[in-house]
Computed example of a mutant assay.
Amino acid sequence: MAPSHAATGLLAGVLATAAVAPFMAVGPMELAAGAAIGAGAALLPDIDHPNSTATGSQGPLTRLLSAGARRFSAWVYHATLTRADTVADGEHRYLWHTPAAALATGVAVGAAGAASPWALGAVLWFTVTLALRGLAQALPRGRTRARLMNRAGTSLAGLAAAVLLVASGASPGPYVGAVLALGMVVHSLGDALTRSAVPLAWPFRVRGRRWAMVGTPRRLRFATGSRPELVIRWACLAAAPLAWLALA
């Protein structure tokens, strides 16, 4: 679902940037930043899967991050489960697929970005590279897609974008943290539409279960890669540039 998550995050980032217009100057640069951060952040929750786009995005660095994310998720799962919860490994689609984790990550990123331009630049670099890799997967297989998925190329593009955004002041730390949290939440909401669902209510209990898998009614859920997912993906990809043009 990587390209679909990136597409929904792209649209969410554009709309969120427009929503903060009363509190900060919003122009084409800010909308571009919001789109990139939202698209990249919408892939972050899958850092808890060893074969995800996020895990493979920066080679050994993100594989190590993924291993740590899975262990921490499993630890939190086992530390907070109730007797009513289903026994599981607590890794993929657990802690990092909760709004609570998204909010905590956003606050931490926002604070770090406000305190250090280096931290802000690192976050921007990582989210932009993720956005490029995620959105590229919506393209048909071929040379263009392969070039856009190239790790060195996306890393350099992400670095250039991060330097530009930090230098321009278009992406202050709290704003980056807020859009990043939103992108992660959008990911979880997207997974809630699928058959597996996600623990959206954690740490609150649902019928005694703290890790209850919450989603749309079962008859409305769909399998990943099915036609409903493709409709959502392309609708978001079409709506994002239209929203950008209307707001710029």
Rank of each mutant, 00 (worst) to 15 (best):
A112I: 04
S52G: 05
A223E: 01
P140S: 08
A6W: 04
M1C: 09
A223M: 06
A108G: 09
P45M: 06
T194Q: 10
T86S: 03
L61W: 08
A181N: 08
R221L: 06
A111S: 12
L139H: 10
S226A: 07
L159S: 00
H187M: 08
S66A: 09
T105M: 05
S66I: 00
L237K: 00
D191F: 04
F222H: 02
P117F: 10
A88C: 15
R233I: 07
V123Q: 09
H78N: 07
S171Y: 03
L180P: 06
E229I: 03
P60T: 05
A16C: 14
V206L: 11
R210C: 12
L103I: 14
V14A: 15
A79S: 05
R151Q: 13
G183E: 03
A88E: 15
L120E: 10
A114L: 01
G40N: 06
R218K: 11
L120R: 09
M213L: 08
R205C: 10
R83L: 12
S168T: 13
G40I: 09
W234A: 03
G113K: 14
G225S: 03
A69G: 08
L189A: 13
R141L: 15
P140D: 05
W118E: 15
G208M: 07
L124P: 06
G134C: 09
A240G: 09
W75D: 12
P140A: 11
T8P: 00
A146G: 15
P28V: 06
H187V: 03
G158F: 03
R63V: 04
A104Y: 00
I232A: 14
A2I: 02
L165K: 09
G121L: 08
T129W: 00
M149A: 11
H187R: 06
A41C: 11
L132K: 01
L237C: 04
A88T: 15
T17P: 14
W202T: 09
F72D: 02
A138E: 04
A201N: 12
F204M: 14
G56D: 11
L148T: 01
M29V: 15
A102V: 03
R219A: 15
V231G: 10
W125C: 02
S171E: 12
G134P: 07
S168M: 15
R195S: 01
A248V: 13
W96A: 01
F204H: 14
L135C: 05
L182M: 11
V123W: 08
H92T: 06
T82N: 06
W96Q: 03
L95I: 11
D46Y: 13
T129H: 01
G215S: 01
S188G: 06
A181K: 09
L148E: 00
T80S: 03
L81Q: 13
A212V: 11
D85V: 02
R133V: 13
V14F: 14
W202K: 08
G215H: 01
R233N: 04
F126W: 15
R218D: 15
W234N: 12
A157W: 00
F204N: 13
G225V: 07
S116M: 02
H5I: 01
L247P: 11
V231S: 05
R83V: 10
V109K: 05
W234S: 04
H5M: 02
P228M: 04
L64N: 09
D89G: 12
G142M: 05
P174A: 04
P28W: 12
L130E: 11
M149F: 00
E91S: 04
R70C: 07
